[in-house]
């Protein structure tokens, strides 16, 4: 199968859907003439023209709201945030507007829209450019939150997000845009809300999503394999809704769970999963659920402090051994 970059997978998803539906347009900072801050939209202006590939001023609140208004009136906008760090100035429009419109209007006015862009840390970018908001948006009913971990998922999930009737928050990563992976030539969609068991195993269930999968989980699994520990790995793909069924099925088999995410710990995706598992699989658990998050602090600049904060493979290995009561 052919191998393409994560950014190319995203671009293909947008191109394919835009060719099928004139009502889809892409709007954001630097998406058109600059070809995208991270080159996701490279060439799209040439193909679709300035009516459908639209550069905006640096005004996230304004253009997020304009896009939501356009969606209320029959269009299907894709809004690119240069990063989700900048979505905070637009969050009123997303939460009070996009997420609630259908409910407040008694089902009359839907908002089919995708807000996409990178989330999480991407090197030494300082505290204001290194945040994870997956759990913030996932908290809000009316939204769906998709966090793909590889090029194949990125394409299939973005295509599903674009044709979805509801507002979708679609989170990528600056560090993943150059990641390569197998993506078939033929069209496909991946269902929103379904997790994927990426590796079957018997000893411990590891649940994670997004950039953590390739950067933390994969090396941890490799290290654990060498020690003869056979973990089952679940990629959530979507954090609203969360596919609890797949998690529970796995935990009932392995009886142990470690959840890994890049966000802050309080009221996070891992807290929610831990609650759900203790409530619905209490008698199956042979150890407390552990979770690995970043430290409960704004992410600093210095590399030593970043390393001390973020989840890494060693911490995952340690947590897996801890739930297995292995002391070494």
């Amino acid at each position: 199968m052919r191998v393409i970059q994560y950014r190319e997978a995203l671009r293909e998803a947008m191109n394919e859907e835009m060719r099928k539906d004139d009502k889809i347009f892409l709007m954001g900072e630097e998406v058109a003439e600059y070809n995208g801050a991270y080159k996701v939209s490279q060439g799209m202006l040439d193909e679709f023209g300035p009516k459908r590939i639209i550069d905006t001023p640096i005004a996230e609140l304004g253009f997020a709201g304009i896009a939501i208004g356009a969606a209320m009136n029959g269009l299907r906008p894709i809004v690119e945030f240069m990063t989700f760090n900048f979505s905070l100035v637009a969050i009123d429009q997303i939460i009070n507007g996009a997420a609630k419109m259908l409910s407040m209007s008694g089902g009359q006015i839907s908002v089919p829209i995708v807000f996409r862009g990178p989330t999480g840390n991407a090197g030494q970018l300082g505290a204001q450019h290194s945040q994870n908001f997956e759990n913030w948006f996932a908290n809000c009913p009316g939204l769906k939150v998709v966090v793909p971990s590889n090029p194949y998922d990125a394409k299939g999930l973005l295509k599903s997000s674009i044709i979805d009737p509801d507002p979708v928050i679609y989170m990528e990563s600056e560090l993943m845009y150059g990641d390569k992976g197998e993506v078939p030539e033929e069209e496909y969609y991946i269902e929103i809300g379904k997790a994927k068991v990426v590796k079957e195993g018997t000893d411990v269930t590891i649940v994670s999503f997004g950039k953590m999968m390739s950067r933390v989980i994969e090396p941890a699994v490799e290290a654990l394999n060498k020690e003869g520990i056979n973990v089952e790995v679940i990629d959530l793909r979507t954090v609203r809704p969360i596919d609890f069924e797949t998690i529970l099925t796995s935990v009932k088999k392995t009886n142990r769970l470690v959840v890994v995410e890049e966000a802050w710990p309080l009221a996070s995706i891992s807290s929610e999963i831990a609650f759900h598992v203790q409530k619905n699989a209490f008698d199956y658990l042979d150890a407390p659920v552990l979770r690995i998050t970043c430290a409960d602090v704004p992410l600093p600049y210095a590399p030593t402090l970043i390393a001390a904060s973020l989840p890494n493979a060693d911490r995952v290995v340690k947590a897996v051994k801890e739930v297995m009561y292995i002391n070494k």
Partner: peptide
């Protein structure tokens, strides 16, 4: 098209409705 409770929140929405037209 509403009926919006956050002061000023409807301003970009109105422009967006016009954008679609």
């Amino acid at each position: 098209y509403g009926g919006h409770g956050i002061v000023g929140g409807q301003i970009p929405l109105g422009a967006g409705l016009a954008f679609a037209e």
